[in-house]
Design a protein around this nucleic acid. Structure first.
Length: 475
RNA sequence: GGGACUGUGGGGUAGCUUGGUCCAUCCUUCGGGGUUCGGGACUCCGAGACGCCAGUUCAAAUCUGGCCAGUCCCA
């Protein structure tokens, strides 16, 4: 297997090489931005979905599924939304041989598919809150370069859509989503900042947008997902109203929460290193791989023992795989490290004689596990691995930010920059130009690497109302 | 929307300027045999490509045109 490009000096080449070498995605399908999920990559995706479902359902959301095609007439009802999306939708204009009277849009996101039906579902205050999510594929005609998982045209999309009685309750739902994402990200070992987007960069049609961003080296960041408060911006054009207890009628306030397979790309980009990918155990296609280290006479017995170990782990809910391939053990070690498996078990004659098995985690930390206590000891090792994975990620996260006090410091920056900002759009664009990227917005929680508020706006120097904002190069 | 560039086995490439020495190079991958097996084994045999369509020419991976696909830059 060839050497990987250097992650520091050639991050994009490194990322593409890891995705390919780890066999997470096959990009040879003949449509730009539409890639094939391999067996290995799909396992990761299924595990990711399981975490998302678990956490969102814990907040009282239920699964639904709406159709992929949307009549043009419904699609066009909210004018900001249309402006934001009409340049990147796929159209279905023919049915068989005939032109359709009403062309159909292949959903770029599902507001316009769902809200006409919400208008039918919501009638009384007793129908609220309405919290539903779906995990479906959405389609966007991306014109920029596409990258597996990070920028695709067929998106594996998680989207929650809710209706609340009023603005305050919608705000509460946003808070609840932020907390749910915090739990999801913890499962993935991904540190991030929740950042309120500036006016000019909020979701089309939103009252405000809060996005989750994580640094991935240099000044570059990756958006992991977003939560939006729509107020009644959609419920008015779509007529989603309810009757209060006193008989009066009013519009609902809505929120959405969106995530995608980008999270898998983020796991690769954030946790990966010179050896390849590194999966947190919740998402790992296999949590444990057993590698027999045979000599000719012990081969059959060792493979049988390895299969038993894997079966025991599977029964204990730990996804395990026995690598019986014809390669030498060392070649297998390299491959499974590249593929990001958290824990490897080496089983040779020495281990069998001692009633133990050697464990080596993705970071190369060795241990010895007794066969008798296999399940509990492995579970413990996996916990230790996740702790270490998270610790390393947080360490890099903390080192990713630096304050800039002058626009000149933004050019060619090797960190994500925290800047004082007065809140004006003109200054925002000046900052974006200086860093050749974007002003992501203002952090929702505490801002890392700073103490107290900024003294002034980095662009205009105003001291009045200056607050911390994040400037970066989003990928 | 404007411009530049690129397209060679499954992946990565050499060859293209100056047409012939190319039934296309090397690495990797894949299939089979043998010797091996505690950190990327070795060896033997085998498989696999010039984006598509036209044109020029005695002769095209190489030149020309169109198309398709992709990449990058600018708006």
């Amino acid at each position: 297997m060839a050497e990987l490009p250097d992650k520091r000096t050639a991050p994009v080449d490194w990322y593409l090489a890891v995705v390919e070498a780890a066999d997470l995605s096959d990009k040879r399908y003949g449509v730009k931005g539409m890639n094939v999920w391999t067996r290995y990559g799909f396992r990761a995706r299924r595990n990711l979905d399981r975490v998302l479902v678990r956490e969102i359902e814990a907040t009282g959301s239920e699964a639904v599924e709406f159709p992929a095609l949307i009549p043009a007439t419904e699609f066009a009802k909210e004018k900001e939304y249309i402006k934001g999306f009409d340049a990147q939708v796929y159209w279905v204009t023919k049915g068989g041989l005939s032109e359709l009277d009403v062309p159909l849009v292949l959903r770029p996101t599902s507001e316009t598919a769902i809200y006409p039906i919400f208008a039918l579902w919501v009638r009384s205050h007793q129908d609220l809150p309405l919290n539903v999510y779906q995990i479906v594929n959405t389609f966007r005609y991306e014109t920029k370069t596409t990258r597996p998982f990070l920028r695709v045209r067929e998106i594996h999309f998680f989207e929650e859509h809710t209706c609340q009685a009023d603005e305050a309750r919608a705000t509460e739902r946003v808070r609840s989503n932020l907390a749910a994402f915090a739990r999801m990200a913890a499962s993935l070992g991904l540190p991030y900042l929740a950042i309120r987007r500036p006016e000019w960069d909020k979701f089309a049609g939103a009252y405000y947008s809060i996005a989750f961003d994580t640094p991935i080296g240099g000044a570059r960041t990756l958006q992991l997902g977003s939560v939006h408060h729509y107020r009644d911006n959609f419920s008015v054009p779509y007529g989603i109203t309810y009757e209060r207890a006193d008989g009066s009628r009013t519009y609902v306030h809505q929120t959405t929460f969106g995530l995608s397979e980008r999270l898998i790309g983020a796991i690769v980009a954030v946790h990966g290193d010179e050896r390849g990918a590194a999966f947190p155990t919740e998402i790992a296609p296999y949590e444990v791989v057993v590698v027999p280290v045979p000599t000719a006479p012990t081969r059959a017995a060792l493979e049988a023992t390895a299969a038993e170990l894997a079966a025991r782990l599977d029964r204990a809910g730990i996804r395990a795989f026995v690598d019986r391939g014809d390669e030498r053990p060392g070649a297998k070690y390299f491959r499974w490290e590249l593929k990001g498996v958290p824990l490897r078990l080496e089983l040779g004659p020495r281990e069998v004689a001692a009633g133990r098995v050697t464990s080596v985690d993705r970071f190369g930390r060795k241990g010895s596990v007794s066969l008798a206590g296999l399940e509990t000891e492995i579970a413990e090792r996996l916990r230790e691995f996740d702790d270490e994975l998270g610790r390393r990620a947080r360490e890099r996260f903390a080192a990713s930010f630096a304050v800039a006090t002058d626009l000149a410091q933004l050019a060619g920056s090797d960190r994500v920059r925290l800047v004082g900002w007065c809140g004006s759009e003109a200054c925002g664009h000046a900052i974006e130009k200086a860093i050749d990227g974007a002003l992501l917005g203002t952090p929702e929680g505490p801002t890392p690497a700073v103490d107290g508020p900024p003294s002034r706006c980095i662009a205009c120097g105003t001291t009045e109302g200056a607050r911390w904002a994040v400037a970066a190069q989003p990928v």
